[in-house]
Nucleic acid binder design. Sequence first.
DNA 1: CATAATAAATTTACATGTTAAGTTATATTT
DNA 2: AAATATAACTTAACATGTAAATTTATTATG
Lengths: 171, 171
Amino acid sequence: MREFRRSLPMSLLKAREAVMKNFIPHLREQDLSPQQWRVLRALFEAVESGEGEIEMKVLAERCYLLLPSLSRIVQNLEKRKLISRRTSQSDQRCSMISLTASGVDLVNLMSPQSEARYEHITRVFGYGKLELLYELLDELTNKLAEADQKEPQETARIETPAAAGNAGKAK
Amino acid sequence: MREFRRSLPMSLLKAREAVMKNFIPHLREQDLSPQQWRVLRALFEAVESGEGEIEMKVLAERCYLLLPSLSRIVQNLEKRKLISRRTSQSDQRCSMISLTASGVDLVNLMSPQSEARYEHITRVFGYGKLELLYELLDELTNKLAEADQKEPQETARIETPAAAGNAGKAK
DNA sequence: CATAATAAATTTACATGTTAAGTTATATTT
DNA sequence: AAATATAACTTAACATGTAAATTTATTATG
């Protein structure tokens, strides 16, 4: 079997943690989790672009969070007056979320450190490599999404009788 | 500010989920979480190498899990008789963990699908790119670990009084 | 040897990840 | 229009991530 160290999910996880490691303490000083920060940043962009309010479903997509997680996060941030919500008039199922003035201030307070972290990473790793890494990650994500959509049972199908051949290992 | 989409942690997270997506259902069929699977695989390698037992701390490092998480996972897997533990004689603080026969059987049952998933990824993404990605991830992780060790306050240092500015809010 | 400092795990408390089930509102179908 | 199916969330239940506090055992110090 392939070596345990050669685990792509683990390599991605380690890289991710290395990247976030020295920024997280700054978030904690403001009692923010990385996920809460993602929500605030997404809402901040909505302010800047003039979009203003965002519904839960869209916010979840932009922050790459599942709705149940976002639901709890929004409740928490609303209690802290960092965001506000109202029910959409056109569709009363929808909550429209937006950043409060306090929320805007907090994002503005944290942004310099966020940018500094990126500058640090760019300096240490190299601009070209960072761009290359982004490209590879996007391509991997997109190609797998495509392939898994076409062949959702890919890994299972290989073990199927019809696929025969079977690399002589399964049995 | 940098665009929200250009978030390295989110790109890494998306890639990771894309990679694991079609393997997780196979794990769920056996009531295994990805983390439980990591633990079983690490213990399986210990069986194969003749190492046999592993203490919690080492197991945590190899699985890239924190001890509190591992502690709960081990309790769960022990109840299911997939692993066993005993107290080390040389140091009674240490638990020595090992895979049971059932555990070995389960790893052998799941391994073909795990391998198939890797073959799929290699086919879809390309062998060369996959190797390149591994290299970049390792280099990023290592360089950041080095740099953060030398300059643990890097991102903060920039906002230090000496650096003035301070956005006038901290106090 | 007694005490203090460490080390290995566990426990606690709270936030998040994740699937399934439940609510309420809108859209479809008959 | 009434019944049914969807859609947008929310809640529930359980596993994990994480920092801080605890427990128990070993090591270092006085």
